[in-house]
């Protein structure tokens, strides 16, 4: 009877000890985790800023290409099968 009581006490003690929340996870403290979280949030913000700047740069680049390199403008009307002159482009 005594043995059983002793065993029950041991089990109870182990349960209490085992249920205690860990103070550290893998050697990292909560303060360190909070610091890491702040750094990641800061990096996320910086990436967003870079993305915005990149979008703006892409828009400027495309406008430049369209204006100076892509269209090439019209050249003097040449004899062709059409035999017509070209009007300015229209959007729609």
């Amino acid at each position: 009877m005594k043995k059983i009581a002793a065993l029950l006490v041991i089990v109870f003690a182990l349960t209490i000890v085992g249920c205690q929340p860990p103070e550290q996870a893998g050697g990292v403290t909560q303060a360190q985790l909070d610091s890491l979280k702040t750094q990641i949030q800061s990096l996320q913000s910086q990436v967003d800023n870079i993305q915005t700047a990149l979008d703006s740069l892409t828009t400027l680049y495309n406008a430049h290409i369209d204006k100076f390199h892509k269209r090439g403008g019209t050249k003097a009307p040449a004899p062709s099968k059409g035999g017509r002159t070209v009007k300015p482009p229209e959007k729609g």
């Binding site: 040449a78 099968k81 017509r84 482009p89 729609g92």
Partner: peptide
Amino acid sequence: FDDANFTTMTLTSPNSYSPVYNDKK
């Protein structure tokens, strides 16, 4: 497909000429 009035191959509308080929835009 116009590469006669443009320096590079350009897809044009029939109404983009004077006189127009037709009124389609």
